[in-house]
């Protein structure tokens, strides 16, 4: 079963909230939908909420990094929101660190960051 992650739009900002574990295929589908949306509405930022996830594997991390890099090529920003403590620790131990991507605690924090920029 494929899961379709809803992508909300607000003032030129795309908000994708991942509510459950996604298969690799689901993540790839999300990637292409986000990128086509970024192009179609000329979004200035993408916020991806992963607070419901208990695990972020290397494939998920790499795809999120790819999304961020592509979005950046369109001149927009990406913020990953809501990485849980356990997930953060596991990622660091695996050497996954979202090096060049902004992270935020919650949506409020993400919007603050976007306003400040």
């Amino acid at each position: 079963m494929t899961r379709r992650v809803p992508i909300l739009r607000q003032n030129g900002i795309l908000i994708a909230s991942i509510q459950e574990e996604l298969s690799d295929g689901d993540i790839l589908a999300l990637q292409s939908r986000i990128l086509s949306d970024v192009v179609s509405i000329n979004a200035k930022a993408v916020v991806i909420d992963v607070s419901a996830l208990d695990v972020l594997d290397s494939f998920g991390t790499r795809t999120l990094t790819e999304i961020a890099s592509s979005v950046e090529l369109r001149g927009a920003r990406t913020i990953i929101v809501g990485i849980q403590p356990e997930v953060a620790m596991a990622m660091v131990l695996l050497g996954l660190d979202f090096r060049n991507i902004a992270t935020a605690f919650d949506l409020d924090h993400a919007f603050d960051l976007l306003r400040a920029a």
Binding site: V81, G82, M91, F105
Partner: peptide, 12 residues
């Protein structure tokens, strides 16, 4: 270092 990297992932 890892702790601080993990903290950053959480947005802090």
């Amino acid at each position: 270092i890892q702790s601080m990297a993990a903290a950053r992932l959480m947005g802090a």
